[in-house]
Simulated assay, not measured.
Amino acid sequence: MSHYLSPEQYLPHDPPMLLLAEVVSVTDESAHCRVAVTTDGVLAPFLNAQGELPGWYTLELMAQTIGVWSGWHRQQRGQQRIALGMVLGARELVCAAGSLPAGATLDIQIKLLMHDERFGSFDCVICAGSGTLATGRVNTFQPTQEELTMLFNQGSTV
């Protein structure tokens, strides 16, 4: 049995936008999460008619795994509040088949390349069995609470 909490304990997401089912491992420089492409799993609302997950979801799967990495580390430092992070961009993001196959169990693995208090860069890979389905480098940003308040209150003046 895993000694990690479920993904929602590390992420600011609620179903159906929580795309991960399990946290497999987290280290200082990596994280590994898992989810199955099945009609009865967390990905069910996003599957196409063939039961496949469209390839554009690979970025969100990678980003949520980075979020798990960040959330786990925040908890290790005694910070219980879940923080909202942002994807700045992705480089060389490739999902060669264009979709993730029905019935596959996806292993999403991220490896830290660079990180400071606010910016991060991660190499990411999504595999099923022994095959690589998607790869990419994801760059992230951790806004301050003041920046988030300003961002979300921009259009709400009365």
Results as ranks from 00 to 15, higher is better:
123 D>L: 11
101 P>L: 14
128 A>C: 13
138 V>M: 08
111 K>Y: 12
120 G>T: 03
136 G>A: 09
110 I>D: 01
137 R>L: 01
108 I>D: 00
112 L>H: 06
129 G>D: 14
101 P>K: 08
120 G>Y: 01
107 D>E: 07
133 L>F: 10
138 V>F: 07
130 S>W: 05
136 G>V: 07
130 S>I: 15
117 E>S: 15
111 K>D: 13
117 E>V: 09
108 I>W: 00
114 M>K: 04
114 M>Y: 02
134 A>S: 13
102 A>F: 03
114 M>Q: 13
104 A>V: 05
139 N>P: 13
112 L>P: 00
110 I>E: 00
135 T>E: 05
119 F>K: 12
112 L>K: 06
128 A>Q: 13
135 T>R: 08
108 I>F: 06
128 A>W: 01
139 N>E: 14
128 A>K: 09
113 L>R: 09
125 V>Q: 02
102 A>S: 07
128 A>T: 08
115 H>N: 14
109 Q>W: 02
110 I>Y: 00
111 K>L: 09
139 N>I: 09
130 S>H: 12
107 D>C: 11
111 K>Q: 15
105 T>E: 04
130 S>P: 13
119 F>T: 02
120 G>N: 00
121 S>G: 02
133 L>A: 02
116 D>N: 04
132 T>E: 15
121 S>L: 05
120 G>L: 06
119 F>L: 14
122 F>L: 11
103 G>W: 07
107 D>R: 12
126 I>W: 14
124 C>P: 07
114 M>G: 00
113 L>I: 11
123 D>S: 11
133 L>K: 07
132 T>Y: 14
125 V>F: 04
130 S>E: 11
102 A>E: 04
139 N>Q: 13
120 G>M: 00
136 G>I: 08
116 D>V: 01
103 G>Y: 03
135 T>F: 11
138 V>T: 01
115 H>M: 08
108 I>S: 04
116 D>I: 05
122 F>D: 06
124 C>I: 12
117 E>G: 00
130 S>N: 15
119 F>E: 03
115 H>S: 01
104 A>P: 09
108 I>L: 13
111 K>F: 05
112 L>I: 06
137 R>W: 03
126 I>D: 14
139 N>W: 06
137 R>S: 00
108 I>V: 12
133 L>Y: 02
112 L>G: 03
115 H>R: 10
136 G>Q: 08
120 G>H: 02
124 C>F: 05
136 G>D: 02
132 T>R: 14
134 A>H: 06
105 T>W: 04
124 C>H: 07
128 A>E: 07
139 N>G: 08
137 R>N: 02
134 A>L: 10
120 G>D: 01
139 N>D: 14
137 R>F: 03
110 I>N: 00
133 L>Q: 10
102 A>N: 07
103 G>D: 12
115 H>A: 10
125 V>P: 01
117 E>F: 12
115 H>Q: 12
103 G>S: 10
104 A>C: 11
128 A>H: 10
134 A>D: 10
126 I>E: 13
122 F>Y: 10
110 I>P: 00
102 A>V: 15
127 C>Y: 14
126 I>H: 11
135 T>N: 07
139 N>V: 09
117 E>I: 04
122 F>R: 08
105 T>V: 14
113 L>D: 01
109 Q>F: 13
